Amino acid sequence: MSIQHFRVALIPFFAAFCLPVFAHPETLVKVKDAEDQLGARVGYIELDLNSGKILESFRPEERFPMMSTFKVLLCGAVLSRVDAGQEQLGRRIHYSQNDLVEYSPVTEKHLTDGMTVRELCSAAITMSDNTAANLLLTTIGGPKELTAFLHNMGDHVTRLDRWEPELNEAIPNDERDTTMPAAMATTLRKLLTGELLTLASRQQLIDWMEADKVAGPLLRSALPAGWFIADKSGAGERGSRGIIAALGPDGKPSRIVVIYTTGSQATMDERNRQIAEIGASLIKHW
Rank of each mutant, 00 (worst) to 15 (best):
H5C: 09
F6S: 08
F6R: 09
A9N: 09
A9G: 11
I11S: 07
I11F: 12
P12S: 12
P12E: 06
F13C: 10
F14H: 04
A16I: 12
F17D: 03
F17N: 08
L19K: 15
P20Y: 03
H24V: 14
P25T: 11
K30E: 07
D33C: 14
A34F: 09
G39W: 08
A40R: 03
G43W: 00
Y44C: 03
I45Q: 05
I45G: 03
G52M: 06
S57A: 15
F58I: 08
F64I: 02
M67Q: 08
M67L: 09
C75I: 07
R81A: 10
G85P: 01
G85T: 07
E87W: 05
L89M: 11
R92A: 09
Y95D: 01
S96A: 13
Q97R: 15
N98P: 09
D99F: 07
D99V: 09
V106N: 06
H110I: 05
L111F: 09
D113F: 07
D113L: 08
T116S: 10
V117P: 04
R118L: 12
C121M: 08
C121T: 04
C121S: 04
S122L: 15
S122G: 13
D129W: 00
N130H: 00
N130R: 00
N134M: 04
N134E: 02
L135A: 06
L136T: 04
I140L: 10
G142P: 02
P143F: 03
K144D: 14
K144W: 09
F149S: 07
N152D: 15
D155V: 01
R159K: 11
L160T: 10
L160W: 02
P165N: 08
P165Y: 05
L167S: 06
N168D: 07
E169V: 12
A170C: 13
P172T: 12
P172A: 13
E175C: 12
E175V: 15
R176P: 04
M180L: 09
M180R: 12
M180D: 11
A182D: 10
M184E: 01
T187Y: 03
G194I: 05
L199H: 13
A200V: 10
R202W: 03
M209A: 04
M209N: 00
E210Q: 13
K213P: 04
A215M: 03
A222G: 11
L223K: 07
L223R: 05
G226P: 07
W227I: 02
I229F: 04
D231W: 03
D231G: 04
G234M: 05
A235W: 01
G236T: 05
E237W: 10
R238V: 09
G242I: 00
A245Y: 01
G248P: 00
K252A: 13
R255S: 03
T267H: 12
T267C: 10
D269C: 11
R271Y: 03
I275R: 00
A280Q: 15
S281M: 11
L282R: 01
K284C: 09
H285K: 09
W286Q: 03
